Simulated scan of single mutants.
Amino acid sequence: MPQKLSENSDKISYYDFAKLVLLGENLEDKLISPTIDWSEWKDFELPKLPGRTGKIAFSDEQIKFPKSARLNETDKKAIALHSFANHELLAIEMMAAALLIYPHKTEDDVRFKRGILTALKEEQKHLSLYIGRLNQLGYQFGDFPLNDFFWRQMEKLKTPSQYAAVMALTFEAANLDFAQHYARLFREFGDIETAQILEIVLEDEIGHVAFGAHWMKKWREDKTLWQYYMDSLPWPLTPARSKGIGFDPKIHERAMSDQDFIQELKNYDDQFQITKRT
């Protein structure tokens, strides 16, 4: 078990922080937000799974995401919010893992990790907002099955470029479309509070994708960003995963600042069903 913070702790190493977030077993551990000291680094072996017990433990049980037309029903809305919250928690855990497993030798290494920490704290904010909204609807996080799909990709991300390709340019890029789509949908249903949460998430995700694009451009050498992204994306993931419902090239361009990349993404098609569902 990771060491808990004392009530008087005002600063801890990023290593201890990330280890507690990743291996801690409850939501309190996942949502800690102390001041970080960047001086310490140790080797770390990626665990098979993040620490989770009780209601927030992973489940093999599957639950279908509700059809859009039924998201005005309280129970279906709760299932959707629960899914969004789990994605945020998975992102928190993957970001904590990234802080632990990637190099910490140069100034650029530390700058990269500082950016990950900024994104992690925003994901903590998103998780808290989704859980708060769930509670208002009469539900708790953990009331529905929790899957580990995103986490299962983590063992494939051996380098920072693979991490940026998958986390920022794929999963978070897709959430640009998903957040925009569902924010619009909940507004149409008159659920302004849920819509506003999704709009907050959307604005933060634009920054997260931009962060990943910045570092991928820095590392790519003589390749185009698209070539480098394709080379960094581990099988079986494809660029189709970076497009959500109602793919909007304009919002992706706002985040990526690379028109050639967006054109390649727009034209890419491997018959991925998520982008074709309604």
Score class of each variant (00 low, 15 high):
residue 117 L to P: 00
residue 244 G to D: 06
residue 184 R to W: 04
residue 109 D to P: 10
residue 176 L to Y: 07
residue 87 H to A: 14
residue 92 I to L: 11
residue 209 V to C: 08
residue 125 K to M: 12
residue 5 L to Y: 08
residue 227 Q to F: 11
residue 161 S to K: 09
residue 155 E to C: 09
residue 194 T to G: 00
residue 75 D to S: 14
residue 73 E to K: 13
residue 230 M to P: 00
residue 150 F to K: 12
residue 204 D to A: 06
residue 194 T to Y: 01
residue 211 F to N: 11
residue 199 E to C: 07
residue 1 M to Y: 14
residue 243 K to C: 10
residue 45 E to M: 10
residue 41 W to P: 01
residue 53 T to V: 13
residue 187 R to F: 14
residue 92 I to R: 09
residue 137 L to Q: 12
residue 65 F to R: 07
residue 85 A to K: 04
residue 41 W to Y: 14
residue 132 G to K: 04
residue 121 K to Y: 15
residue 173 A to I: 11
residue 221 E to P: 07
residue 221 E to F: 12
residue 153 Q to L: 12
residue 91 A to Y: 03
residue 244 G to P: 06
residue 125 K to W: 14
residue 128 S to F: 09
residue 78 A to W: 12
residue 172 E to H: 13
residue 67 K to G: 08
residue 76 K to N: 15
residue 44 F to V: 04
residue 131 I to A: 05
residue 60 D to M: 02
residue 102 Y to T: 02
residue 143 D to R: 13
residue 224 T to S: 15
residue 227 Q to H: 09
residue 108 D to F: 11
residue 172 E to G: 09
residue 22 L to M: 04
residue 128 S to V: 11
residue 259 Q to D: 06
residue 79 I to N: 00
residue 85 A to W: 04
residue 255 A to Y: 01
residue 72 N to G: 06
residue 185 L to D: 06
residue 139 Y to V: 09
residue 204 D to N: 11
residue 232 S to E: 04
residue 217 K to T: 03
residue 131 I to G: 00
residue 30 K to G: 05
residue 176 L to C: 11
residue 217 K to C: 06
residue 228 Y to W: 13
residue 30 K to W: 00
residue 180 Q to A: 11
residue 102 Y to I: 04
residue 182 Y to A: 02
residue 249 P to W: 09
residue 28 E to C: 03
residue 3 Q to N: 15
residue 201 V to S: 02
residue 98 A to G: 06
residue 180 Q to E: 13
residue 22 L to F: 02
residue 68 S to C: 06
residue 165 A to Q: 07
residue 272 F to I: 04
residue 13 S to Y: 06
residue 5 L to F: 14
residue 139 Y to H: 13
residue 103 P to S: 08
residue 246 G to Y: 02
residue 215 W to I: 12
residue 238 T to L: 09
residue 204 D to M: 09
residue 110 V to K: 03
residue 209 V to H: 02
residue 81 L to G: 01
residue 29 D to T: 02
residue 210 A to H: 01
residue 172 E to I: 11
residue 253 E to H: 15
residue 277 R to H: 06
residue 243 K to T: 09
residue 50 P to C: 11
residue 165 A to I: 07
residue 94 M to E: 11
residue 260 D to P: 01
residue 15 Y to R: 03
residue 26 N to A: 04
residue 2 P to S: 08
residue 40 E to C: 04
residue 155 E to R: 14
residue 60 D to W: 03
residue 148 D to M: 14
residue 61 E to A: 12
residue 144 F to S: 03
residue 120 L to S: 02
residue 228 Y to D: 10
